[in-house]
């Protein structure tokens, strides 16, 4: 594997960075360009920007803020939010995004994954999955950007990630919903199960609260990257300190 990636995730609402707890009660967390610059300077390996309301509101994200980010940073970044056509994706990539992440629209129409992979390459296409535990298994939820719109898909998470990567998704961001925003640690067993089920990189998401959680994501769950929001936005963990700790644990880090 390359160096394991530390990936701050920035939720975007109306062009501002926001943070909610378990997908609810969003509060303002700063300017999008200032946040991108700060994380890039601190040594983030990649950034993810989610327009969290786009899919539930039936629209695609606004490429103008994508362009503002692309101008100021020189590390890779992915964007997500209501990308449901080839042209939606092309607008984001033309604006300077390196990857597009698709979640609810891929569930609506799985053919979208293959269409995007064919034109832009699998390495551009990230599958976002919101997974929750129930009845002894893990299931995929849809439209999680809005509590009113969230619904069950009836799909098992492992079935869906196998299908979607078979269709051409080049990376999976696995968000474990019960763990999101509560800082109790990633769902290691589930992340490991997904990493074992697919051949593409898997990014752990949901629940990071301490450096040990990142360590477990890499050493115990085989995650290629670990995504977090709260601990970085609230400055509970500094990225340089985190990377130093993980390197001391024997994990390859870019520093």
């Amino acid at each position: 594997m390359p160096a394991r990636r530390i990936i701050p995730c920035l939720d975007v609402l109306a062009g501002r960075v926001v943070k909610g707890i378990q997908f609810r009660d969003h509060r303002d967390a700063g300017d999008i360009v200032e946040s991108a610059l700060r994380y890039s300077a601190e040594g983030a390996d990649e950034l993810v920007f989610y327009d969290i309301a786009a899919s539930a509101e039936g629209r695609s994200l606004d490429p103008s803020w994508v362009r503002r980010i692309a101008r100021v940073i020189d590390i890779p970044f992915a964007v997500a939010g209501g990308i449901r056509t080839r042209d939606d994706a092309a607008r984001c990539l033309d604006a300077g995004a390196d990857k597009v992440s698709i979640n609810s629209p891929a569930l609506e129409r799985p053919d979208l994954i293959a269409e995007l992979a064919r034109d832009f390459g699998a390495q551009c296409i990230v599958l976002g999955v919101d997974s929750f535990a129930a009845d002894g298994d893990y299931w995929v939820k849809q439209y999680t950007g809005s509590p009113q719109a969230t619904r069950d898909t009836g799909r098992r998470t492992l079935d869906w990630v196998r299908e979607a990567t078979g269709r051409g998704a080049g990376e999976v961001v696995l968000n474990c919903m019960r763990h999101d925003g509560v800082r109790g640690g990633y769902d290691i067993a589930h992340t490991k199960a997904v990493a074992d089920a697919v051949t593409v990189p898997v990014i752990a998401s949901g629940g990071a609260g301490a450096p040990e959680h990142f360590r477990a994501a890499f050493l115990d769950a085989d995650a290629s990257g670990a995504l977090a929001a709260t601990v970085f936005h609230d400055r509970l963990i500094a990225i340089p300190d985190l990377k130093e700790y993980l390197a001391a644990c024997g994990i390859e880090m870019r520093r």
Binding site: M1, P2, A3, D98, K99, G170, V200, S224, R254
Partner: peptide, 28 residues
Amino acid sequence: PVPHMGWSKLAVDDPAIGLADGDYVYFA
């Protein structure tokens, strides 16, 4: 995993390319 995605370390044979041994660069 494939794609090879992320920052990998380089071994560099020619300093005229502006890079040095141990530099990390982004692959996808």
